[in-house]
Design a binder for these strands. Structure first.
Length: 224
DNA sequence: TCATGATCATGA
DNA sequence: TCATGATCATGA
């Protein structure tokens, strides 16, 4: 598949109800997302033929494109942060921003805004207008700075001091089935410790900015 | 009210 | 367990 073909397919989904897309693909539709949090993302993956499955790859490796749904409220603002990838906590000494999973995933993103309003039945919510995004040099620099700061702390054995408040645009938060899940990490004295698995997430003000810059229309000349 | 920390489903 | 797909729900 070519990039323009993928983009055309994604564009053609705009305005369609989740229920109709699911029916066309024979995918069962839950009442709500409470026990199916990833359902909309998986629906769109199926609709567009994403291939990577559960591998740590972009959704369309041959195109270098990552697919991300983003739930919006009635004002068109993101309702949730955007998960990027799990955070490596051991064997990180050779990692750089340039070779990081975060940069790899965010190099080119096919964003698909979706109606995230909880007061609208899932079946009636609609898909929005897809768009392709690549970080501007300024955005790339922000992401890199946050990534470097988080990874420096992790390398120093300070992962457990990191909260979601840290990072201008990229935050670190738990990414696990529940708060008892444990994985290896570097401890304060350089020893191996057990800690909650973490993931990288884009803060909503960052994705809101991406959406604003994408859909902002040139203003009309002043009336006179 | 809203973001943080907690949580849910599934496949390999 | 760890990767994918994320949203829920409560404390601040």
């Amino acid at each position: 598949m070519q990039l323009n073909q993928l983009f055309e397919r994604a564009s053609a989904l705009a305005g369609h109800r989740f229920a109709d897309v699911a029916a066309a693909l024979n995918i069962p539709m839950p009442e709500n997302l409470r026990r199916n949090k990833g359902w909309v993302g998986q629906l769109l993956e199926a609709a567009l033929g994403a291939s990577a499955g559960s591998q740590a790859l972009q959704d369309f490796p041959e195109l270098g494109v990552e697919l991300k749904t983003i739930p919006l409220d009635a004002q068109g603002k993101p309702l949730e942060t955007t998960f990027v990838c799990t955070t490596p906590l051991v064997d990180i000494d050779q990692l750089t921003w340039e070779t990081s999973n975060v940069r790899n995933k965010l190099q080119c993103v096919l964003w698909i805004p979706v109606d995230g309003r909880r007061d609208v039945p899932l079946a009636e919510r609609r898909i929005g207008t897809a768009f392709l995004w690549q970080p501007t040099p300024a955005q790339d620099a922000q992401l890199k700075a946050d990534w470097q700061e988080h990874m420096d702390k992790i390398a120093l054995g300070e992962v457990e001091t990191i909260t979601a408040h840290q990072g201008e645009v990229l935050q670190l938060r738990p990414k696990a089935a529940n708060s008892r899940v444990l994985t290896d990490a570097i401890g304060p004295d350089g020893q191996l410790i057990q800690t909650l698995p973490r993931g990288f997430y884009l803060k909503t003000h960052f994705t809101a900015q991406i959406i604003a810059q994408t859909f902002e229309v040139p203003h009309a000349p002043p009336a006179r």
